[in-house]
Amino acid sequence: MTIRRTLPGLAVGALVMSLSLALSAGPATTASAEARVPAAPAVSEQQVMPHLRALQRIADRNGGNRAHGTKGYAQSVAYVKSALDRAGFRTRLVPFTHDGAPGNNLIADWPGGDPDHVLLTGAHLDSVKEGPGINDNGSGSAAVLATALQVAESGLTPERHLRFAWWGAEEQGLIGSESYVSKLSGADRRRIDVYLNFDQAGSRNTRQWLVVHDDEHGETEAQQAFEAWFAERSIPTFDIGVGGSDHESFGNAGIPSSGFSTGISDCIHEACDNLANVDPKTETTSTDAIVGVLWKLAATAPRH
């Protein structure tokens, strides 16, 4: 996580409740679309934590990190890509160069859905050179991967086109995501209905989930959906602005954004950001939230 903004400290209990009530009464066309899609599956710890253990092993055998330009990062990309390829995704590596070293973003598309209305879900996969980056941001990467694999296992047939992404060199200044966004045509940018970002999804001692509020676009349908999901389970949240992580690149390009973080851990950007720095229960809850909201947004017919 690249930190660029101080988080506001106001609770959003009343707001969350009002959003939950508002979401319960959608238009008939939305309800009809959702009826055609099965309920979101529940995710178990056994479906997400093995990915984090795999990333830890990759770091262990490559000098203790998974940073841009290293074998640790290249093997992390290969691990995620292999899982997606086996599941039936169309994957591609999008190369870029930073600080004299080549890097790749990994993009995975699930067949089907309206290509003019893309739901893009992502996380940065790289660590810093000081450590393995298992919470920052193996946790977000693993949660997004587990979500994508749930899509495949369920054979989801979404209204919107589903795309997943894992960014490189984000720890060096949001390089990978910015490279991806800068190469999109104006038409391709407009096709992305919303970008969902997840950074540090498994922090220990998490008491509330920090839900991204899009400063430019206001409350997006995704933000409302996340806050409603957490409110239904009596899990506290509060808003954070678009800034400090990969969604900043999309916000700067005028693409609506949301997502969440579980907060900055004590071991951020240090060798102690290892597997022991992730709480499996928090990681599983985060993955469940992503799956639940993605299922809802995927089933929602675009309004524009």
Rank of each mutant, 00 (worst) to 15 (best):
A225G: 13
S141Q: 08
D109Q: 10
D279L: 00
G241P: 08
S258K: 01
T206W: 12
I235G: 15
I192K: 03
R163I: 02
T206Y: 11
Y195V: 01
D193L: 02
L275A: 15
A123M: 09
Q150S: 08
H213M: 02
S82E: 08
R163Y: 07
K81W: 04
Q150N: 09
G140T: 05
R61G: 12
D246R: 09
A54P: 11
D126P: 11
S185L: 10
P256Q: 07
N104Q: 05
F198L: 05
A28Y: 04
D188H: 04
G112W: 13
S76Y: 00
S286K: 04
A142K: 13
S82A: 14
G9Y: 04
E216D: 06
R207D: 06
D239M: 14
Q223R: 09
A146G: 08
R303S: 13
S179M: 04
N137D: 15
G113M: 12
G243T: 05
G69N: 08
P132T: 15
L196D: 03
P102S: 01
S141W: 06
S177Q: 03
R90C: 03
L19W: 12
G168M: 11
L156M: 12
A228R: 15
V181G: 07
A67V: 13
S44A: 14
R163N: 05
P236K: 10
N252F: 05
F260P: 06
A33N: 09
R61S: 12
L10H: 15
R36C: 06
A28H: 12
E221D: 10
N205H: 13
E171C: 13
Y195A: 01
P102T: 02
D239I: 12
S245K: 03
Q224H: 08
R204E: 08
A54G: 11
D239T: 14
G140I: 05
H304L: 10
F198G: 04
S234C: 09
W295S: 01
D266R: 06
A225W: 00
A33H: 11
V48H: 10
I255L: 04
A54T: 14
E171T: 14
P280R: 01
M17V: 06
P256I: 02
N274W: 07
T6P: 01
I255M: 06
L84S: 01
G63F: 05
G13C: 05
L15I: 10
A87R: 01
P256Y: 03
L210V: 02
A87M: 03
I268F: 14
N137G: 14
I107L: 11
E178V: 04
F226Y: 13
Q208P: 02
P38I: 13
A231M: 05
V16E: 15
Y79G: 00
G292Y: 00
E219C: 02
I192V: 09
L119Y: 14
D199H: 03
